[in-house]
Design a protein around this nucleic acid. Sequence first.
DNA 1: CCTGCCGATATTGCGATACGATATTATATT
DNA 2: AATATAATATCGTATCGCAATATCGGCAGG
Lengths: 101, 101
Amino acid sequence: MIEREFFLGFIKIHILYHASKEPIFGVGIAKELSRHGYYLSPGTLYPTLHRLVKEGYLTQDSKLVGGKVRKYYTITDSGLEVLKQARDKIRELVDEVLDRR
Amino acid sequence: MIEREFFLGFIKIHILYHASKEPIFGVGIAKELSRHGYYLSPGTLYPTLHRLVKEGYLTQDSKLVGGKVRKYYTITDSGLEVLKQARDKIRELVDEVLDRR
DNA sequence: CCTGCCGATATTGCGATACGATATTATATT
DNA sequence: AATATAATATCGTATCGCAATATCGGCAGG
């Protein structure tokens, strides 16, 4: 896919956004993203989630669902802060790129 | 800087957008981007421009300006196509992340 | 003129990232 | 017990990001 270089940040913002609405988990968010036409292979998805945890934007906690461990991710204050910044940048991008000025 | 991971794609879209309005060159686009609070060091800017050329989104041609060679970049049809896709994705991002539904 | 500065582009080197492929773990189905 | 399915994890390689550094040609000021 050609798009990746331009839209990978979009995907990460989506992840933060969904995590701000409710706890998310790997496969769940992958399906959610695919509804928007974004596809992340496990080799990208999991390292990304882990990095977002390491950087303090998400927290992780394990839950047993149907006998299987599932890792849920929830947004942190720091993550909400980045999401707020993202909203501002998106508005700016809209004003600029969509010619609304 | 935290933002980079999320917003680098934004920067590239800005570059394509400006290149669609008029030919751009390295230092010029760097200044333009800084008006939006985006800063690209030469080590990022030039490889990025070259890659966009290699991938067929921009074309490069040299011009003499004040006795010095300056490399101007112009958008290609393929670049315009990505820009169109970007507009759609941005609208989608706005609808989703800015809670306008 | 020459020395240093400025505008502009290029390159190097290393650490971080992206991602397909593969593995792992556990339950459910046949 | 074999197969499928759900979910997460990891490995290896290629690519990217970026600060630092280099280059190159004008243009002062002295």
